[in-house]
Amino acid sequence: MGRPVPKPTNITKPFWEATRQNKLVIQYCKDCGTYTWYPRPVCMKCMSRNLEWKEVSGKGKVYSYTITHIAPKGFEDQVPYIVASIDLDEGVRILSNIVDCKPDEVEIGMRVEVIFEDLSEDMKLPVFKPSK
């Protein structure tokens, strides 16, 4: 896929370093116990900066999805493909792709789990596939 390769910032670097080892980590607030997605400078619940990166299960369910028929630049040869919002069991909603799944097989509420796809030589992107 012609996916654009992200340029990490000092905030997001730990996330991308973890994916390289096939680990999904999410910011967790040590003050109020809330997970925050996407990576931010503060906890989205209480604005604390007392955050740590916690490895999560990578399991969740589909909140919503769309089948892309007209694609942005770089994705044209992949259509039709699935873009989905996924509620992780730990309690954050993330945008991703569902792979290894036919467009007519995806549905709201479907259980999915993370896998990692190579983005470049030293970067990996978390995507999701249907759980068995």
Binding site: F75, V83, L95
Partner: peptide, 19 residues
């Protein structure tokens, strides 16, 4: 650039489709 575009949603229509 980091958490949306790598997944290729078709811009605002792609995201509104989820909605």
């Amino acid at each position: 650039a980091e958490f949306e575009e790598p997944y290729g949603p078709m811009g605002p229509p792609g995201l509104f489709a989820l909605f």
